[in-house]
Simulated assay, not measured.
Amino acid sequence: MQKLQFEEKWDKAIAKKDRKRIEQIFSELDLTNNSGIQLTRLSQAQNYRGELLVMVLIHNTSDQILNFDGTKLHYIENNEILANHTFTLPSLVIEPKTSMPWTFIFPVETIQPHVSLENGYLELIRS
């Protein structure tokens, strides 16, 4: 059975209403028939530096540990790749049958200028 886990720093810093929202979204998902990796978008925004922040729930429904060591992600809107970056995050390790919220930050130089921040999603590219 899939469980929800918060990374240690998130667990200490997350606001109660945000935790409740994530727990609610997680409880409404049906992940029982999957044996891989899924991403559920929670929010997206651009910060004051122009970086793209995409918060997702990462679902590792496999029997293997998931890490983000050289993992390529695309941010897509209207079937167009609008941001593309390779993430190496040694602290992000997700156990089997575990879901975890995370915010991926795309550097400014990896983002197309016409990002609308509406109906976007992340796509994990496995090599």
Rank of each mutant, 00 (worst) to 15 (best):
M1V: 06
M1H: 14
M1Q: 14
M1I: 05
Q2M: 04
Q2Y: 02
K3F: 04
L4F: 05
L4C: 11
Q5R: 12
F6C: 14
E7A: 11
K9S: 08
K9P: 00
K9R: 15
K12T: 10
K12C: 10
I14E: 00
A15E: 13
K17E: 07
K17R: 12
D18T: 09
K20M: 11
R21D: 06
I22H: 06
E23H: 14
Q24D: 09
Q24G: 09
Q24T: 15
F26P: 00
F26Y: 15
L29K: 05
L29Y: 02
D30P: 00
N33T: 02
N34K: 09
S35I: 06
S35T: 13
G36A: 13
L39V: 03
T40H: 09
T40W: 01
R41T: 02
R41M: 11
R41N: 04
L42W: 00
S43C: 00
Q44V: 01
Q44P: 02
Q46L: 07
Y48R: 10
Y48P: 02
Y48Q: 11
R49I: 01
R49A: 13
G50R: 10
G50K: 15
E51N: 14
L53W: 04
L57M: 09
H59Q: 08
H59Y: 04
D63K: 13
I65H: 07
L66T: 01
N67G: 02
F68R: 04
F68N: 02
F68D: 01
G70Y: 01
T71S: 08
T71R: 04
K72P: 01
L73H: 00
H74L: 06
H74P: 04
H74N: 08
H74M: 05
Y75A: 03
I76H: 06
I76N: 06
N78Q: 13
N78P: 05
N79G: 03
E80A: 15
E80N: 07
I81E: 08
L82S: 12
A83R: 10
A83H: 12
N84A: 13
N84G: 15
H85K: 05
T86I: 14
F87N: 10
F87A: 08
L89D: 12
L89G: 06
L89I: 15
P90C: 04
P90W: 09
L92K: 07
V93M: 02
V93G: 00
V93E: 08
E95H: 12
K97A: 06
T98L: 06
T98P: 02
T98E: 07
M100L: 14
P101L: 05
P101F: 01
W102Q: 07
F106L: 06
P107Y: 08
P107S: 13
V108K: 15
E109G: 01
E109P: 03
T110V: 06
T110A: 13
T110E: 09
T110N: 13
T110Y: 10
I111M: 08
Q112I: 03
Q112S: 12
Q112F: 09
P113W: 08
V115M: 09
V115Y: 07
S116A: 13
L117V: 06
N119L: 11
N119I: 03
G120V: 01
G120F: 01
Y121G: 07
Y121D: 04
E123P: 04
L124G: 05
I125Q: 07
S127G: 12
